[in-house]
Every structure is written in structure tokens, then in C-alpha cells.
Amino acid sequence: PDSPLARWTKSLHSLLGDQDGAHLFRTFLEREKCVDTLDFWFACNGFRQMDLKDTKTLRVAKAIYKRYIDTSSIVAKQLKPATKTFIRDNIKKQQIDSAMFDQAQTEIQTSMEESPYQMFLTSDIYLEYV
């Protein structure tokens, strides 16, 4: 009853917490040309766990900003303008905070739950795996 597959359909969060589930969802998103949203989601989680005293952390924040937010990437398109401005200002002032990407991650997660996650559960990639 609590097979991995049962967990995958429970929520996006449980799908992404499973190695095979995350891998398969990534394959699906690559095909749909929106894999950046998933990489951004994982980058936000990784960033939150970083040590704020480590100089590497500011560089990672800048790298996330440059790669996903200050571009025409699908992530930037799905974020609210105010969310992008908030992150840009933090980066400019070098004010790094573990929660600085939380709002952006929530917006991306909501949009993944609304569309690609639902599509994934009816996709041939998923059905073949099942």
C-alpha cells in the first residue's frame, strides 16, 4: 500500500523526496523543456542548508540569481516581479539570508503542482514505469 508509486501520487513533495521519482520527473521535464524549474527547486533547498558564514554561500546565491532569475528562463517567467526584485536587492546589498529564495521556491512549486506534476502522472514515461 505504501509503495513508492503510491507516494508519488500523494504529492509533488513526496515524488521529489524519492530518488527514482525525482529522476523520472526530471526526464519528463527535460522533454517538456522546463527542467530548469526542478533544478531551481532543488537549488533553493540546497541553498537553505548552506552555512551563511561560508563565503561560498554568497557566490551560490549569485549563481542561482544569474542562472534562473536574471534571465529569460522559464523560472524567471513564472515568478512575480516583486519576488524577483526582492532577490535582486538582496544580492545587490550582499544581504544573504537562508530564506531569501523561499518565496520564489513556493511560487515555482505551486506552478509545478498545477501543471507539470499533473501531466507527469498521466504521461507515458510514468505509465511505462508503473
Binding site: Q19, A43, A63
Partner: peptide, 20 residues
């Protein structure tokens, strides 16, 4: 010194689920 891409990749990988 690590490149920006390496740092980003490392950050993403650190958050990926590990095999149980």
C-alpha cells in the same frame, strides 16, 4: 577556485534525494 556552474551543480546535488 570552483566555477559558478560547479558551485550551482554542487548545491543542486546536495539537495537531491539519496538512495534509501
Amino acid at each position: 577556485i570552483d566555477s559558478e556552474d560547479d558551485l550551482l551543480q554542487e548545491c543542486i546535488s546536495s539537495a537531491m534525494p539519496k538512495k534509501k
